[in-house]
Amino acid sequence: MEGLSAVLESLPYILSGISVTLGLVALSLALGFALGVPMAVATVYGNRIIVKIIRVFVFILRGLPNLVLLFLFYFGIFPLLGWNLSPFAIGTITLGLRSAAYQTEIFRGAILSLEEGQMLAALSVGMTKNQAIWNIILPQALRLALPGWSNEYPILLTDSSVTYAIGVAEILTRGSQMVTRTYQPMPIYLTCAIIFILLNWGGMQIIQWGEKKAYIPGLGRKTET
């Protein structure tokens, strides 16, 4: 069957795209986390100006389609700044900033869901606000946020394919290239779909394992009567 042979021929090339896809996902998640946590803390504990700025950032990055953001950065912003970045870098930054916007909201919700007493008790034993945030609030909030945060993985995984539009050599791009070579779109695209589904499933297993390890009984339960 031509379909099968086309798939076998393309497989090595497509599979090597997995590292690109996972790289995109991992780096974007990391960027999103590195920005999201401080921004979430700032929206809860910061002054009004910072809160407004972050809210605007979150609004714009959550409201725009991925494709528009990619085009905006790739064709507009980075050329304007004169920066010559690779499509992979641009894709990572764009997806990372977008993830940061979502993660800010996730962590903000988690921080707010902790009862006020945790901060009061921390202050009452003499901790500064920053010590309280770092030692008491964040360890609990991050754990509470895990279920919502782990959603970011499948989202980023599927969104990574949109970087096709700016030429990043991830799985979908490579699949399309092989399709133009072999004229077998159905088998090859289905193969790509299966790869994505497996990556999705595998990633979720790892995340669930992580959730189990981080589990602390009774976390987040409120004692307020």
């Binding site: 599927t158 394919s161 979908l172 779109p185 695209y189 790509c192 779909a193 994505f196 999705n200």
Partner: peptide, 11 residues
Amino acid sequence: KGCPLLLLLFI
């Protein structure tokens, strides 16, 4: 859910 939308469109 596991298949990216863009890929689905291509299919």
